[in-house]
Simulated scan of single mutants.
Amino acid sequence: MSYNILSQKLLHDNVHLYKHCSLPILKWNYRLRNIMKEIQRHNADILCLQEVQEDHYETQVKPSLESLGYHCEYKKRTGNKVDGCAVVFKQASFSLVSCHPVEYFKPDIPLLDRDNVGLVLLLKPKLEKGSIRSGEGSRINRSCIEHSLNLTSAYSHHSSKRGRPEITTRGHSRRAMTVDYIFYSPTSRDTSLNSESDGLQLLARLALFDEIDLHTISGLPNANNSSDHLPLLACFRMPNLQASCEYENRF
């Protein structure tokens, strides 16, 4: 699951964007209850959370997630920012091998001249699990980024109902758009060996809205959706996990 939960300070700093909302539904404690209900309902093995305000993380978000059996890692944004990102995972499903925070700020590079950060976690699956509900996602800039990673998006970015673009947020221009993604490394079939290579097989994903749907729920946030972003959720199968189990069980 990947979810930008909307930092309360950013909400206050940009309150003009939320004139369509009544004041009670913008209060942090109201929003936190809805956000935690959303997380519990989807019950993901891995959560990637953005715009997590540091003080709220330490006093409320982290304790709430730990009470649900999650291990939490956090990285605050650089500069004078008060929010950051968190990657959390179910301790019953994974063990942590390593965690590496990343700071992207580069003052003379237009794509990177902002206080963005990331977290890279290496996790080891616990062997009884064969599929994961995941949020290996992040927001990206639409400028060109080149890499050699074999990644594909879990989403088609077009609604199957109407053929219209899927949306994940309504941006500062008030135009609905997609800026949140879940990327993964897919399996590929080796026909010579009649086997699948390392990677993940996408089994299902949580449906997203298009702009027409967004109007029917009174925009974002609203009384039930307490962020200005929608959560993304994908379920993956790990084809080589069974082979790994059989190998490790011999020793």
Rank of each mutant, 00 (worst) to 15 (best):
K129F: 12
H147I: 14
S67C: 01
Y104R: 00
L68N: 03
S93Q: 11
E58V: 11
V88K: 07
E136P: 12
E51C: 06
L49H: 04
I132F: 15
E146A: 09
G135A: 15
E103L: 13
Q91Y: 04
L121K: 07
Q91D: 13
P125W: 09
S93R: 07
S98W: 11
E146M: 12
D83V: 14
V52S: 09
E66F: 06
V52N: 02
S93H: 09
L122Q: 11
E128V: 05
K106S: 01
K129Q: 03
K124L: 12
H42K: 09
S131E: 02
S138R: 11
D108W: 06
H56V: 02
E66N: 05
H42P: 03
D113Y: 10
H100R: 10
L49W: 06
S138D: 02
I46H: 08
H71G: 03
V52W: 05
Q60H: 04
L123W: 06
S95F: 01
S64M: 09
D83I: 09
R142Q: 10
R142V: 05
L123H: 01
T78M: 15
V87G: 01
N141C: 11
K106T: 05
A44E: 08
L127E: 02
K90T: 06
Q53A: 05
G79M: 13
I140R: 02
K62D: 00
L127Q: 04
D45F: 04
H147C: 11
L127H: 01
K106E: 08
N43A: 14
L47M: 07
I132S: 02
H147M: 11
C99S: 08
S64N: 08
R139N: 13
V87L: 13
E146I: 15
R114E: 14
N43T: 01
C144M: 15
P110A: 15
G69R: 03
C99Y: 08
N141S: 13
E103S: 05
F105A: 03
K76D: 09
V82N: 06
Q40Y: 03
R133H: 11
A86F: 00
E51P: 00
Q91V: 05
R142W: 12
G118L: 08
S131N: 02
A86M: 14
D115K: 01
V88L: 13
P110T: 10
H147A: 08
L96D: 15
H56A: 10
L65G: 00
G118I: 07
S138G: 03
K75C: 06
D108S: 14
E128L: 06
K76Y: 05
A86E: 04
Q91K: 09
K62M: 08
S93Y: 07
E58Y: 05
L112F: 13
H147Y: 15
S134L: 08
T59R: 07
Q40H: 06
D45M: 06
I109G: 00
F94H: 04
Y57P: 01
P110M: 14
Q50N: 10
N141M: 07
